[in-house]
Write a protein that binds this DNA or RNA. Structure first.
Length: 787
RNA sequence: GCAGGGAUGGCAGAGUCUGGUCAAAUGCGCAAGGCUUAGGACCUUGUGCCUUAGGGCUGCGUGAGUUCAAAUCUCACUCCCUGCACCA
């Protein structure tokens, strides 16, 4: 469609507390791109939503109910507390405070399409999505192991960043392969690397543990008593038969089931109970045996053991013991028949990769990474028992979890827009409607009769979808690299036809503060609101856009933020002065000099390169050129003291228009002084005929000559007083001669020379006592300095 | 364990893909001069070492290599940071 909007989204914020300067980065970068497209006169669609799925809102709700004074630390404004009667109200209050911040930050968002993931309209689409996944066979059920508190009878989240419990840090559920050995006793050892069995091995037992014979799934094994307990927690069919003593005996004959060699048994010096407490240790003494340690070799061993019914697995925590807040020791428990989205499905992986083939990523290297991530992903649990969210349509008592309900929200904004504006009622959203709007499936009249929505409304929705989809670019933080973005790709590949597949992904790295991860405990936490109040909207935008490349960590510093603010104020003051000057009728000079030609050439060169940068989402180079470099060009121009009002005005006007995406308030305000209305602000077009690279080179050489003059003068001054130094310059071309003549004033001033005489090499009346002229090169005049 | 990013001058941070134009952008800081009653702001210049003419030397985490030429390419190493599934 020719009226396709430029469609961009950022990974919407989770309603879990106050927003900080890290969010500013994640949302300002897309807003800069949005404003760029806006100022080019394009339609844009830039909606915003709020991620409320999960237990955050409930936690905040409970915390506030227990202690209302804590509300502000969760980003809930004082006047919002009264409105909170249930967890969903937390979402509403936070969402409205976020919107307040977005407005304060001047974002060009489509607020009309705002939605949260717990709104009924959102759920309708998610249910539709899950029915699609189910039809495709991408929803599967299998057992699942997770950390569990036996006392509270609920899952424990071992998230270091969310918890102050030290043993949670880095802890996770790991999987051991269990191997049944041959010989006198059916010892069952554990390992994470089966390939070790290809070489010679040792079994380590723990003298502090009691061992027992048990029957698991009808098979006799010897493991530790503790391991029997752990397997019971995992809901395994296991029964103890008798105690067994295996410590301190050398007569026991145990064979490696792969090599059939006898293995040695020894006692571990460590007291940590782990696995079955019979640890398989590969005697990897030589380089040769190390070669066997790889995944392929492990797979082969697995297959062999599987054939002889000698392999099993168990899950447990990577570090033990871990205690829940309630004091109970955390166990690993098996959930039977958990629902998964099967990201391990091979066909699905293929179509996801096909999608990646046609996507652009910024930075570009992420694209290559994506293929590996897609290969690596396996089935992902998609439902949980508690929290807010959409009810799972295929089994009661489950809620669709947070990362499974946030993959096609770009399509949902179209529906949200219609619901919010009252065009359709949430109850009339049906699978038939969504099939029609998103996929073009079905008959409009039928959809109209089953939903009760007028045909022209349905057609408008379909048109709206077609004029926005596909998504042009999805912005998100790097934490989404291996989770959200791949899921987003998988789900689009599964559900939408190829023409609606997204076109680009933009990743930005994190913001830290004063060299450390932002945290309220460390006192380096900077809230968005405070940043805006202290430094102002545009200074924050400028700092965020120019402070670091997108793919590196941004180290927020209040000092630099303050300096940026000062810089911006200076820029505003300077520009105001120049606007006054450029509109002052007393100023002279309508004739275009060489300096005007140069400045206009520089202006258009800059427009050209910044436009190219912006089209490639290279925001930092854009702002460096558009702000720092261009300001420098202007100040060079001014230093020649041959100011032409018209040139100055043209430059300022286009320069400010280029700055609009980055510092919109400043740009708008200053352009108003120039008589340009906000609605008229247009990204400047390139006047190619104005670009004169040769002229730019001569001016570059001028700067180099100043450096040369300074260095000569500096050395001379060291050994003698400089009274009346005259400098003779020998240039190579007529063009250079004209420019150097014109620029004499600046040269004498900045290089501290009393007088400058310019000759062209070969001039008849040339004064050249030391035959320097022979050293002149194009763009590099020779110099003779007296005194 | 798997994967990714990084290390540049007093500081922040470009430059690395496409080797030379890089003693290294830009900003801050610092120094000198101008302006100013003063301070601030602003303007100019300087800010690795040496050098009586635009030159030389050293230098971009460490070590080695490729090349006429390396911050930039190759290999090894050290250190820092980040993500990894039921947390969003």
């Amino acid at each position: 469609m020719n009226d396709k909007s430029f469609y961009l989204v950022f990974a919407y914020p989770t309603t879990s507390g106050a927003l900080h300067v890290g969010h500013v980065r994640s949302y300002t970068l897309p807003d800069i791109i949005a404003k760029y497209h806006l100022s080019k006169g394009e339609n844009i669609f830039f909606p915003v939503g709020f991620h409320a799925t999960g237990s955050d809102a409930m936690k905040i709700f409970n915390a506030i109910k227990a202690d209302p004074d804590k509300a502000e630390s969760y980003g809930i404004p004082r006047d919002g507390i009264d409105k909170i009667n249930e967890p969903a109200d937390v979402v509403k209050v936070l969402a409205s405070s976020y919107i307040g911040l977005f407005r304060k930050a001047g974002f060009s968002l489509n607020y009309d399409a705002a939605i949260s993931t717990i709104d009924p309209a959102y759920s309708k689409v998610i249910e539709w999505q899950f029915r699609k996944l189910h039809e495709l066979g991408y929803l599967i059920q299998k057992d699942y192991q997770l950390p569990w508190c036996p006392n509270e009878n609920q899952p424990v989240h071992l998230d270091a960043s969310e918890s102050d419990i030290a043993s949670f840090k880095g802890n996770k559920v790991i999987k051991y392969d269990l191997v049944l050995f041959e010989g006198d006793l059916p010892l069952m050892g554990y390992t994470m690397d089966l390939s070790g069995l290809l070489g010679s091995i040792t079994l380590e037992i723990n003298p502090k543990e009691k061992y027992a014979e048990a029957v698991i799934d009808g098979k006799k094994v010897v493991i530790s008593e503790k391991a029997i307990g752990k397997l019971l927690n995992l809901d395994r069919d296991i029964k103890k038969i008798r105690d067994v003593a295996i410590g301190g005996t050398d007569s026991l004959k145990i064979l490696n089931p792969i090599t059939h060699e006898r293995v040695t048994i020894r006692e571990t010096p460590f007291e940590i109970a782990d696995g079955t407490d019979i640890k398989i240790i590969a005697d990897a003494k030589t380089e040769e045996s190390k070669k066997h340690h790889n995944a392929t070799a492990g797979d082969e061993v697995y297959k062999k053991l599987e054939a002889s019914n000698r392999i099993d697995t168990m899950q447990e925590l990577s570090a033990k013991p871990v205690y829940c807040r309630c004091g109970a020791e955390v166990i690993v428990k098996t959930i039977k028949n958990q629902w998964f989205i099967d990201y391990g499905n091979r066909d699905w992986k293929e179509s996801a990769k096909k999608l990646v083939d046609n996507i652009s990523t910024f930075p570009s290297g992420y694209k290559d990474e994506l293929y590996g991530i897609i290969d690596w992903l396996g089935p992902r649990p998609c439902v949980r028992r508690t929290g807010l969210g959409t009810k799972f349509p295929f089994e009661d008592g489950w809620i669709i979890e947070a990362l499974s309900d946030s993959n096609i929200y770009m399509a949902i904004y179209i529906i949200a827009e219609a619901v919010n504006s009252g065009k359709i009622h949430v109850n009339s959203i049906s699978d038939e409607l969504l099939d029609y709007v998103f996929l073009g499936k079905g008959e409009m009249n039928e959809v109209s009769s089953t939903t009760g929505i007028a045909t022209d409304t349905i057609k408008a929705l379909r048109d709206r979808f077609e004029s926005t989809y596909p998504l042009d670019v999805n912005f998100g933080g790097m934490e989404h690299k291996s989770v959200h973005f791949p899921f987003f790709i998988f789900n689009h590949a599964a559900i939408f036809p190829e023409k609606y597949w997204p076109r680009a992904i933009f990743l930005n790295w994190h913001v830290i503060s004063n060299g450390a991860k932002m945290s309220k405990h460390l006192g380096n936490y900077v809230s968005w609101n405070d940043a805006l109040n202290t430094y102002g909207t545009d200074a924050v935008r400028l700092y965020i856009a120019s402070g670091a490349e997108q793919w590196s960590i941004f180290n927020w510093s209040n000092q630099v933020a303050g300096e940026t603010k000062t810089r911006l104020v200076e820029f505003i003051n300077q520009t105001r002065r120049l606007i006054k000057l450029s509109t002052n009728s007393n100023s002279t000079g309508d004739n275009e000099t060489i300096f005007d030609q140069w400045l206009l050439s520089k202006l258009n060169s800059s427009i050209q390169s910044v436009t190219a940068y912006m089209d490639r989402y290279e925001i930092r180079p854009s702002i460096v050129e558009a702000f720092s470099d261009m300001t420098g060009h202007l100040s060079s121009y001014l230093s020649y003291n041959k100011i032409n009002n018209k040139t100055l005005k043209t430059f300022i006007e286009k320069h400010l228009a280029m700055l609009y995406p980055f510092i919109p308030n400043t740009s708008t305000e200053l352009l108003r002084d120039l008589g340009v209305d906000k609605a008229q602000i247009k990204w400047p077009s390139i006047e190619k005929e104005r670009i004169n690279k040769k002229l730019e080179n001569v001016f570059n050489s001028l700067d180099n000559t100043i450096k040369d003059l300074n260095s000569i003068r500096k050395i001379k001054n060291k050994y003698q007083e400089n009274e009346n130094n005259t400098c003779y310059l020998y240039v190579s071309t007529d063009e250079e001669k004209i420019i150097y003549e014109e620029a004499k004033e600046r040269l004498t001033k900045t290089a501290g020379i009393n007088e400058i005489v310019v000759f062209k090499v070969g001039d008849k009346d040339i004064y050249d006592p030391e035959n320097r002229a022979s050293r002149a090169k194009p763009f590099r005049p020779a110099i003779f300095m007296t005194g």
